[in-house]
């Protein structure tokens, strides 16, 4: 009996803690885990929410809300400013859950992400992919609408980068016209489309004419309305030409040659600057036109907001529209 006593005590000692802990054991079911993630999301603790969503689809891989959780993970990373992680998750949703309702939303968010990270070329490419994939008219219209504004808004950036060869404003017109008649009414885009046609009639400066006029130094600048540049260019070039001429006249050939060399640079620079000025003038005019168009649209359509935000435990992406 004496030998058995310690064994009995040991058993009692081991059993008590089990009884003591048994009340604290929590069984996490799928719903509770998802709710925790949602709560953190609503509290805007996006990093924590992202990890709870990840825990959810890791623990319950066959649950019906897995697609939603994965989509929300991407959104959370996006809001938390972790764009690389967000992009990875959203791309996965678009490819692995293409049949779910989350794929279009994931692609819309992905395009917004690329705009945020200053890559409008990729943003446009994602929206174009969505257009080829979707058969849903509402999604199609929304993609055309967003793509049209994106191309207008970032026309300069897109045009100046090698990943984009087509003239963006023309393509924007094309996408606006692809919106169904119902969509055009919904987005009230008809007025903007009519205004956009005026872009063809913008008064532009011809770079070729500017180049030809700059044969007389400053002529090209004058044509582009750059009067000070024209005057400086004319005075500088004519002074250097005169100086070179005088040097050769006085048999100072080395000085004449050196001045001619520098003058050749300034003269070519004058031609380059004139052509460049014409391009800059046209770019500026187009930018002003698009800015006015956007402002006009937003003033008239104050119901549309190009923001992201939370609505009823969900996410409103790219823009909100209040009927």
């Amino acid at each position: 009996m004496k030998k058995k006593l310690p064994v009995i005590f040991l058993w009692i000692f081991l059993l008590f803690p089990i009884n003591g802990f048994s009340k604290d054991v929590v069984i996490v079911d799928a719903l509770r885990q998802y709710q925790l993630a949602q709560t953190l999301f609503e509290e805007k603790d996006f990093s924590a929410a992202a990890y709870e969503y990840i825990r959810f689809f890791h623990l319950f891989p066959n649950h019906e809300k897995v697609a939603g959780a994965k989509y929300q993970t991407g959104i959370c990373f996006f809001y938390a400013g972790r764009f690389e992680d967000a992009g990875r998750h959203l791309e996965k949703i678009a490819s692995d859950f293409s049949d779910s309702g989350f794929a279009p939303d994931a692609m819309f968010t992905l395009s917004e992400l690329y705009v945020t990270t200053d890559d409008p070329g990729k943003a446009a490419s994602v929206l174009r992919d969505l257009l080829t994939l979707t058969q849903n008219t509402s999604v199609h219209d929304r993609a055309c609408f967003m793509l049209g504004w994106l191309l207008l808004d970032k026309a300069d950036v897109l045009k100046s980068r090698s990943d984009y060869k087509v003239y963006p404003v023309r393509e924007a017109e094309k996408y606006f016209s692809m919106i169904s008649s119902e969509g055009k009414k919904k987005y009230r885009i008809e007025d903007s489309m009519t205004s956009l046609e005026k872009i063809r009639h913008l008064k532009k400066k011809s770079p070729a004419v500017a180049g030809v006029l700059s044969i007389i130094p400053g002529g090209g600048f004058l044509y582009c309305g750059r009067y000070r540049d024209a005057l400086i260019s004319f005075l500088l070039n004519s002074s250097l030409i005169l100086a070179a001429y005088q040097s050769f006249e006085n048999d100072n050939n080395f000085l004449g040659g050196a001045i001619s060399f520098v003058e050749a640079g300034f003269y070519t620079g004058n031609i380059y600057g004139s052509v460049s000025s014409a391009h800059k003038y046209n770019k500026q005019k187009q930018k002003e036109f698009i800015d006015n168009l956007k402002q006009e649209y937003l003033t008239n359509q104050d119901k549309i907001s190009f923001q992201t935000g939370l609505i009823n435990n969900g996410v409103a992406l790219m823009f909100k529209y209040n009927f």
């Binding site: 540049d229 620079g269 380059y272």
Partner: peptide, 16 residues
């Protein structure tokens, strides 16, 4: 670069 640089010298402080 030489041509662009000289063009810039002409435009410096001007209409730009």
């Amino acid at each position: 670069g030489w041509i662009m640089g000289l063009d810039r010298l002409v435009r410096c402080g001007g209409d730009e």
